[in-house]
Amino acid sequence: MGVTRKLVASLLSLVAAVTAAQPMPGPGAARVTFAPPAIVTVTRGKPGTVTLNFRVGPGYHINSNKPSSEFLIPTTLKLDAPTDIVIGKVSYPKGEDMSFPFASGEKLNVYTGDFAVRVVVRPLHNVVPTKYAIHGNLKYQACDNAACYPPKQLPMSFEVKVAKGAETAPRHNPAQSPHAHR
């Protein structure tokens, strides 16, 4: 039985060693994460704003949407909405002008920590009222204090609930409007 115990102890030590030897997150690790928002209700035919929250990991920064140099890659959000849901203006926050050890005398306009992108979503009048998923990608290029990582795409998605909204008074026939041109 003593042999069994020794064998078990040795094997468990081996497992512990293997587990401890697992590599740290490498250069391919995500440096930006996305926190999906609670479902936002938008009324058919009316614009609604969805706030999308992202977080840049500690020690990293990414270029803002308007970086300070033409060569730097801006952070951009591309969204792919279902038919009859229109993606309107995408508003990016202002970046922060920061100095870094590698860029003495030059300030870079960057996002660090939490930042939010606001998106206007407008379901058309004819959309069936239900939940819709909107998928997209945040393109960013991250650096730390000494190195930069290739541009990356962060896949993300959020849901909107399209509500029917209050019934409005019957609309005039556009053809009868004196302002109608066709």
């Binding site: 064998l7 094997l11 081996l14 497992v15 293997v18 587990t19 697992q22 490498g26 250069p27 391919g28």
Partner: peptide, 24 residues
């Protein structure tokens, strides 16, 4: 015990390979 340990190590190895990706 040997079977459990081997299975555990295989799991860790596969998990690591998936997490690391080809670049790593």
């Amino acid at each position: 015990v040997v079977a459990v340990v081997v299975a555990l190590m295989l799991f860790i190895g596969i998990h690591t390979a998936r997490r690391s990706g080809p670049g790593s």
